[in-house]
Design a protein around this nucleic acid. Structure first.
Lengths: 209, 209, 209, 209
DNA sequence: TATGAATGAGGATTCATTCAT
DNA sequence: GATGAATGAATCCTCATTCAT
C-alpha cells in the first residue's frame, strides 16, 4: 500500500505549512514575538499540535533558518561551479546573488543572522547552532573557491581567499543587520543593494590584476 | 572636608563595579543569562541593590553599551579631526582603531552589536535603542568625513562617502559577529584583525586615485 | 455532539470556580492578601492557570466586582421600572433591595466599595475603574428616576432627585464600610439593615407631600 | 537645664514638619504614592531619618489620620456641649461642621476614610486601626448626644439616636468617598456640600416633632 | 541628629512544553 | 491527528526597614 507514503507526504506538507506560518510570524512580529502560540494561530493549529511535527521550538526555528541558509549556500555553490563564467564574472555576480536572497525574504534572513549573532538569546541547542554554522561555512568555502580560481587562472592577484570569503560574508551579514537597525527608526530608507554592490565592487576591483 | 566628593567617587566606583560584573556575566552567559539576579551575584550584591545605582535593567545594559560605543565614536572623531595626517593615512588607520576597540573588550562589543542586531529581543526601551543608534551614526559620519576629505583633497576618487562609511561599519559589525559565531565552536581561531585589515585595505586601495 | 457546548460550559464553570476562590480569599485576607498565588491555591490551581481564564489580575478582580455591581444595578432598574408600585412604595423598597444585596455577599460588596474608594491602591486600569463607575452611575440614575417619578405624580415634594439618589448611594456605601470597620473589632454586632432602613426611612418621609 | 525641654520641643516640631510633608504627599499622590521615600523628600530628609521620629510608616500614617480625626471629634463634641443652642440648631449645624472639616483638607480626610475603609490595604497595626476607630466612635457618640438631647427636650421624636449618629457618619464617609470617586473622572464637579446638606436636612426634618 | 548603603520579602506575568482524551 | 487543560521555571521590580558611621 502507498498509504505510508501518502501519510509521509502529508506530514511533510503540514511541516511546510507550519514553517510558512512561522516565517510569516517572524516577519511580522520579530523573533521575540514568534511564540509557539502565535505561530500555531497563524497556521490554524493549537500550540500542542506543533509538537507533533517538531520536537521543540528550537527545531522549528532551526528548520526555518536551515532551509534558507541551504538555499543561499546552494546558490553560491552553483555559481562557483559554473564553467561558462570566469572568476571575475563570478565575483561580479556575488552581490547580485546576495541581494536576490535578501530581497527574497528579508525578515527570515534577518532572523537567521540575528539567531546566529546571538546564540544565547534563543534556546536553540548547540548542535542546531553548529549545523547552521556548518551550512554557512559551506557557502563561504564556495565563495573562497571563486577567488582561488581567479588566482589560479591569473585573473586575481595572489591573496588569502578564505579571508576574502569571510569578509564578503561578514559584509553581507553586517549590512543586513545594520540596514535593519537603521530602518527601525527610518522605515523608508533602504540602501542594502547600493551599499553591498559598492563595497563588494571596491574589494573585487582591488583584486583584479 | 571632601567627604561629599569621596562619597560620590565611591558611588561611581560601585556603579563601575556593577558594570564590570554585568560585563563579565554578559561575556560568560550571554544576554539571556544576564539576569539581574546573576549580575547582582557576580557583583556580590542582592538584586535590589542594583536598583540603587541603575533605574532599571535597561539603563544598566544601556550604560554598558553606551560607554563603549561612545569610546568608539570618540576615537573615530579624533582620527577624523587630526590635521597631521592626510585622508589616506587616516583611512589606513581605521582598521587599527577598530581592532583596538575590539581587543579592548570583545564581549561587550559583541553584546553591543547583538543588542543592536536584535532590538526586539531585548526589552530595552526604544529611546535607549535610538540613543545607541545615534551614537553609532555619529561615528559613521566621522568616518564619512575622512573619505569626503580625501575626495576634496584629490586623494580619493569621487564616490558616495556615506555608503563607504556604512560599509565599513557593517564590515566591522559583521566580522565581530561572524568571528564570534565561529569561535563558539572553534575557540582558538581568531582572524578578526587579519580579515578586517585585509577587507578594509582592499576597499581603500580601490578608492585611491 | 454538543461537545463544544459542554466544553464551553465547563470553561465557564471553571471561571466561576476561580471567581469563587477569589471571593473567598478576598473575604478572608482582604485585598492586599488577594494575590494571584493565594487565589490560585484556593482554587486548587497554579498561578499560571488563572491566566487561562483571565487576562490579568485586574480583569479577575473587575469581573468579580462588576458582576455584583451589575446585579445591584439591574435590581434597582427593575424596581424603578415596575408599574404596579407607586413611587413611594418603590422608595420604601430601596432599603430592602440594598439589604438583600448586602446579605448576598458582604465581602465582595465590601471589596467593591473598597476598590472604588481607593482607585490608587489597586492596580486596576483606569478603564476598568471607569466601567465600574459607570455601572454604579447607572444604578444611581435608576434610583433618581424613582424620585423624579414621585415628584411628577405629586407623591413627593419638588427636590433635586439626582442629589437624593447620590445621597442614597453614599449612605449605602458608607454604612457598608463603616459597619465592616466596626465589625473588625466587634465581630458580632450587625446593624446594617437597621441603620439603613432607619436613615433611608427618614429621608423618604421628608420627601412625602 | 531647659535643654531637655527644648530638645523635646524641637523634636515635636520636626514630627509635625514630617506630618505636614506626609499630608502634602498624600494629597498629591494618593496613598499608593505616599512612600517613605516620597515623604522624606518632601520633608527634606532622607527616608532613614523618618524612623527617628516615627517607629514605622504605620505610626506615621496613624499619627496623621489620628490628628485629623481628633479634630473632627473635638469639633463635634464642642458642638454637642454648647449650651447656647438647642438640639435642633445643633443638628442643623452638623453639616456645616462636617463640610468645614472636609474643606479643610479633603485629601487627608479622604485618605483617612480610605484607610478606615480598607484596613487590609495598609500595613497599619490592628492596634492603630482600633485607636482610629475609637476616635471615630467618640465623635459619633457626641453626635448621638445631640439627638438624645433633642428627644429629652421634646424637640425630636423618640428614636434610636445611636443609629441616627451612625447614619450621619456613614453618610459623611460615603459622600466623601463617592464624590472623590466621581471626581476621578469628572474633576470639576463638586457636590459635597449640596448633597450632604440636602440629605442631612431631610433626616433632621423627619425627626422634628 | 542624619544618612548612605544594603536588603528581605514579596508579586504579577510569560511561555515552552506535557499529557490525557 | 488534534487539542484543551495545566504547569514549571523564570525574571523584573518595589518598598519598608535596618544599621554602621
Amino acid at each position: 500500500m502507498g498509504s505510508t507514503e501518502r501519510r509521509e507526504r502529508e506530514q511533510r506538507m503540514r511541516r511546510r505549512h507550519i514553517l510558512a506560518a512561522a516565517r510569516k510570524v517572524l516577519a511580522e512580529k520579530g523573533i521575540r514575538g514568534a511564540t509557539m502560540e502565535e505561530i500555531a494561530q497563524e497556521a490554524d493549529y493549537k500550540p500542542a499540535t506543533l509538537y507533533l511535527y517538531f520536537q521543540s521550538k528550537d527545531e522549528l526555528l532551526f528548520s526555518l533558518s536551515g532551509s534558507l541558509l541551504k538555499g543561499v549556500t546552494e546558490e553560491i555553490q552553483a555559481l562557483a561551479d559554473r564553467t561558462d563564467l570566469d572568476a571575475l564574472e563570478k565575483a561580479r555576480r556575488l552581490p547580485v546573488i546576495l541581494d536576490r536572497i535578501y530581497q527574497l525574504d528579508p525578515p527570515v534572513l534577518l532572523s537567521l543572522f540575528r539567531l546566529q549573532a546571538s546564540q544565547d538569546f534563543s534556546r536553540m541547542s548547540p548542535e542546531a547552532m553548529q549545523a547552521l554554522n556548518d551550512l554557512a561555512q559551506t557557502g563561504i568555502r564556495a565563495m573562497a573557491r571563486v577567488f582561488e580560481e581567479g588566482v589560479r587562472r591569473g585573473v586575481f592577484k595572489e591573496h588569502n581567499s578564505a579571508a576574502m570569503a569571510d569578509a564578503v560574508w561578514s559584509l553581507f551579514t553586517g549590512i543586513v543587520l545594520w540596514e535593519e537597525s537603521k530602518r527601525f527608526f527610518n522605515p523608508d530608507k533602504r540602501f542594502f543593494r547600493t551599499t553591498l554592490e559598492f563595497a563588494l565592487g571596491l574589494m573585487t576591483d582591488s583584486l583584479v590584476k
